[in-house]
Write a protein that binds this DNA or RNA. Sequence first.
DNA 1: CCAAAAGTGTTGTGAATACACCCATGA
DNA 2: TCATGGGTGTATTCACAACACTTTTGG
Lengths: 243, 243
Amino acid sequence: MENNEEIKQFMNSGHLLLPNISIDCVIFGFHDHQLKVLSVRFKKTEFNALPGGFVYLEEGVEQAARRILEERTGLKEIYLEQFYVFGQADRKNTDSHRRFLEENGIEADDNHWLLQRFISIGYYALVDFSKVTLRVDSLSEWCQWFEISDLPPLIMDHAEIVQKALKTLRLRLDYSLSAFTLLPETFTMSELQTLYETIQNRKLLRTNFQRKILSMDILERIDKKWTGGAHKAPYLYRLRSDV
Amino acid sequence: MENNEEIKQFMNSGHLLLPNISIDCVIFGFHDHQLKVLSVRFKKTEFNALPGGFVYLEEGVEQAARRILEERTGLKEIYLEQFYVFGQADRKNTDSHRRFLEENGIEADDNHWLLQRFISIGYYALVDFSKVTLRVDSLSEWCQWFEISDLPPLIMDHAEIVQKALKTLRLRLDYSLSAFTLLPETFTMSELQTLYETIQNRKLLRTNFQRKILSMDILERIDKKWTGGAHKAPYLYRLRSDV
DNA sequence: CCAAAAGTGTTGTGAATACACCCATGA
DNA sequence: TCATGGGTGTATTCACAACACTTTTGG
């Protein structure tokens, strides 16, 4: 119950924020050959949502998104892309937010800022899974990774937001090297290939993939690893520092 | 001076609108072999801007964009795409809006809603130039087409907004048939080609262009026209109704 | 008949695909 | 030595660019 103070403080911080504007983040990570997304659960409820937040009066929108991301992942430098604004007239949190307040013993009337309509700016982030330290704030029960095809039910239009983010990521992938930000600093060629296969959701031929990536001349090769596994160890690569 | 009433009424309509949120529209038209954009001038000032507006409390964001577009062009059905949100912390209209108020004899203090920071949602629209009826509202001196490479100075970041819209349009053009919405219902093949050349800013070979477009099987050919010009008249085409 | 419009044929290039094949290496 | 990682060679397909050439048609 000691956390209730923090929740109450948050509930009273409306005057510091831009009203009716929220930010929702689809945070992509890659682990165990799968594309994952972060989701949080509102404390003492069974409502799940995307990590999100609001914009302080004197804060830029992208700046706000970076703050929210850091609060959840502990990472300061994050690959971030705005992808869509969700602004239907009836976009309100009535059910989930009201229940959240009830369950946490907070009374708020219908005019409370948190229960208003919100226009949400969607950002997606690509993070190095191994560098993320999941952080749970005072409003949430937990913060977890989910396989993208196995997400729990999400509040409001958050499932739709994830789909739109994924679609945009796929479209933009071909034109950028952004996928590398999902990998650790060093990686094997087959890890890279699996990543591309996972995002694009199709198989690629190893030989052609290798040729294409190497011909782009953006990787440098380091020593070897996997002293653990049997047989030959794969090479490790790193994205060239000048790209 | 009789319009001052309308301006005053608008200035007092803040309580009907979502605060701190604006919409800016880059309205593209194609005429005289050139890509054009609509700009408006604030009444009694020399400030030019993109056609824009605000979102009513009970109105969806896209719905608001369509309303704004109709107010300017008279068109109800418009091809519309959201492309970016501009949300820097210092995004304010101080100079231009304050001058606008002064020049129109309206006093407003620093806390007035119109002088606050605005997060602007950018939409671009593709319209049939020949169908547009330019409409000037009570706040603006005029509303005019400008060749895209010959825009007047625009307030705030509006020039940047145009560039971002154009860049997005170019990127998305290849994947969609959206360009056709810039043409009248019937058009010649060379008009279509010039349109693509203008947007992509490069020359195309007539023969290859023709072959490619026709092979897509999306056009139907009608009679002829140009009884005016000498020599053979070009065919007229129309986008097939089922695409 | 002439000039512009409309359409076909052909050739070369480069990227993507598919698969056969060879070399390297660590337990 | 053998299974796996790493890499080359090459044939096929396809989209596209470039350009030559023919056909259509209104005045």
